[in-house]
Each structure stands twice: as structure tokens, then as C-alpha cells.
């Protein structure tokens, strides 16, 4: 078990965003968390990364409790994330963005920086090498000195992942990595996420709305609704689960459907249900 959430509860005033949530992420898997808007997916991410502290329950990374640690401490333990809306350092260069991700791994002190000691030169050279390597891996080679905000939308998403990878994480949290992408970019992203697992042995926890993506790449899917886990299992099993369909389409829809043949709600039908 790489990540384990035990009975995690988070309330905002009267709203219970997460209720007694248990979740276990196995190493080297792609684990998706899905659920309708407001189901508590992003709240869960924020609890894992330390931006929110759960009111009850605890979160363990590799068996070690991380609840209550500062975000930067959790980051240095090996959890990196991306954001639902891209949050790059928009006015810094692509290379600087990744170098900032390497912050914990560039180790030299104040005096090294001021005096440009050997340590400074070695660390900086190593860091730049690693950053360029990451950018090449992610497909942004040759764009190191571009300003992040000038990248195309898909490339900005990639850069955000490269920046997260720079933390050398054990667990990568991706919050809707394909949001706003066209089918071509989405396919590229799917390939990339798979490569991260297969080539780099990365464990990936993923929030996603695009069911095609979820069904395509997930090893395991967890479905949240109103802060509670309503289903978990292999993509195909979850797809057939009446509770899931009900959560997405409403009670009437679920009872009227032949669940075996029912196609999983696509994005359009989800938004239809919402409206």
C-alpha cells in the first residue's frame, strides 16, 4: 500500500465534503477517483497534499502518517500534484518552472549561492541536466527558454506534470489532466500517463471526468458521491454498478436502465444530468 486514507472526514461548516473515506492506492498502479461535481475529489487531494487538514481520520504514505504535516514536508516525502486549472509559474521560463520543482533536490546553502562554491556549480549543473532530461521525456525539449504562459494549452499541462515529476515523487496526483483538451491531446496525455507507470514505475492517483480516459487507463476506479465512497473496482465493474449510474444520472435513470447494457455516461450526459 503506497497511500492509505483511513476514515478521513472533512467538513466545511455544515457541509461534509468527505465522510469516513477509506482509500488505498497500490504501488505502480493508475488509480482513478471519479464522481459528480462536488463529490469531494479535489478536497481529498488537498487533504493528501496537506493544504487541508482532515477533521477526522488519518492519511498514511507507505505506512507513515502524514496528516498534519505542512505541504512542503509532504512534497518532500514524495507526493507531487498538478491542478485542475493549470497553475504554472506563468511568467518564469519553462526551465525555471522545472528547476523550482527540483528545489528539494538541489542542496546547497546561502553561502554556497553567494560564493558560487563548487557545490553550487555541481548542484546547479546536475539540476539543469535533470530538468532538461525531464522536459525531453515529457516532450518539451527545445522549449526550455520559452515563458511558460506562451506554451500551448496541452504543453502547459505537460509542463505541469514535468514540474511535478521534478520532485521525484513516489505518488503523483493528477487533477483532471485532460480537462479542456481536444481528442488528439487527450490521447497523447493517456499515453504519457501510461508511460509514467510503465517506464518510471510511478503510482498515479487521478481525478478525471472524461470516462473514455478513466476506462482506458485505470487499474482501479473509486467513485465518490457526496463525500462518500459508493463503489470501487475494476473499470468494467464500476461501469456496471447501478449506484454509480444513479449518482451520475439520478435515481429514475438508473431504475429505467438495463444496467448490463448501459453505456457509461459520457461527459455530455453528465452535463445534461447536471443541468
Amino acid at each position: 500500500m503506497l497511500l492509505e486514507a483511513r476514515k478521513v472526514t472533512k467538513r466545511f461548516g455544515g457541509v461534509v465534503a468527505l465522510h469516513d473515506l477509506d482509500l488505498q492506492v497500490q504501488p505502480q498502479t493508475i488509480h482513478s477517483v471519479i464522481g459528480p461535481n462536488g463529490a469531494g475529489k479535489t478536497t481529498f487531494f488537498n487533504c493528501v497534499t496537506g493544504f487541508l487538514v482532515p477533521d477526522e481520520g488519518e492519511i498514511l504514505l507507505d505506512g507513515q502518517p502524514i496528516t498534519g504535516l505542512r505541504p512542503d514536508q509532504i512534497a518532500s516525502l514524495g507526493i507531487a500534484r498538478t491542478y485542475q486549472t493549470i497553475r504554472l509559474f506563468r511568467f518564469l521560463t519553462v526551465l525555471d518552472n522545472v528547476l523550482i520543482g527540483l528545489h528539494q533536490h538541489v542542496k546547497y546553502g546561502f553561502l554556497d549561492a553567494v560564493l558560487r562554491s563548487r557545490r553550487y556549480h555541481q548542484s546547479e549543473r546536475a539540476a539543469e541536466h535533470e530538468a532538461r532530461e525531464l522536459l525531453r521525456y515529457i516532450g518539451l525539449a527545445g522549449q526550455e527558454h520559452l515563458v511558460a504562459t506562451n506554451l500551448s494549452y496541452g504543453d502547459q499541462r505537460r509542463l505541469e506534470i514535468a514540474r511535478a515529476l521534478a520532485l521525484r515523487p513516489r505518488l503523483l496526483l493528477l487533477d483532471e489532466p485532460t480537462a479542456g483538451m481536444n481528442p488528439y491531446e487527450t490521447n497523447q496525455m493517456i499515453t504519457l500517463i501510461r508511460r509514467l507507470r510503465d517506464e518510471r514505475g510511478m503510482t498515479i492517483l487521478l481525478i478525471e471526468h472524461d470516462m473514455k480516459v478513466v476506462m482506458n487507463i485505470s487499474d482501479l476506479v473509486t467513485v465518490l458521491d457526496f463525500g462518500e465512497k459508493i463503489a470501487e473496482g475494476k473499470p468494467a465493474d464500476v461501469q456496471a454498478n447501478p449506484l454509480v449510474i444513479e449518482a451520475y444520472l439520478g435515481r429514475g435513470a438508473a431504475s429505467g436502465l438495463d444496467t448490463r447494457a448501459a453505456p457509461l455516461p459520457s461527459e455530455e450526459s453528465v452535463s445534461d444530468a447536471a443541468s
Partner: peptide
């Protein structure tokens, strides 16, 4: 770089360790 990260987006800077 850490300072500039904080200047640009403090939350993300923290998430970067």
C-alpha cells in the same frame, strides 16, 4: 528561484516542496 515561486504562487510553491 524559491522566492520567485512564492511571488508567483505561494500555494504551488509550497506544493513544490
Amino acid at each position: 528561484r524559491a522566492w520567485m515561486a512564492i511571488r508567483e504562487d505561494e500555494d504551488v510553491a509550497q506544493a513544490m516542496g
